[in-house]
Amino acid sequence: MRRYLGLMASYRGREGTWAWMFHRISGVAVWAFVILHVIDIYLAGGDPHAYDDLLAFYASLPGRIMEILLGAALLYHALNGMRILIIDLWPSMTVHHKKMWYGSWVIFFALGIPGALIIMRPYWREPLDDLLGGGGVVHLGGILDGLLRATGVL
């Protein structure tokens, strides 16, 4: 086992090896979360107060950072899993495996960055509204409202 971890740490691989290593690390991370998650949801029935206490942590700043990391592990594993499946089903796609690996990172960040912002919304939505609306200059909601009215949607 030590040799295995040492190999993982010292090996300077190319795209396919990195894809495999990230797949394994993200998979084990999600597995660990699943154990916690089944137990916490069991508590929702077995001990609702304990569940609500744990929920308060999930909704806190460290909790949200961990949720973003969980989402990142989940999304990487899902996208790379699809890459593996494509190659399994159509072996001729193997020649494109590097392109698919870089493509999966493009999708990862395109979905992941907005996703992370949505999870962090309690920390920026109100301050942003205060900043923009408080001065009486612009209000994000007001801009959207105006646009919708102008285009006849509202």
């Binding site: 190319r14 090896t17 495999w20 593996i84 495996h97």
Partner: peptide
């Protein structure tokens, strides 16, 4: 039994 270079 893994070929890490290209696939799962």
């Amino acid at each position: 039994d893994i070929s890490p270079i290209t696939r799962g």
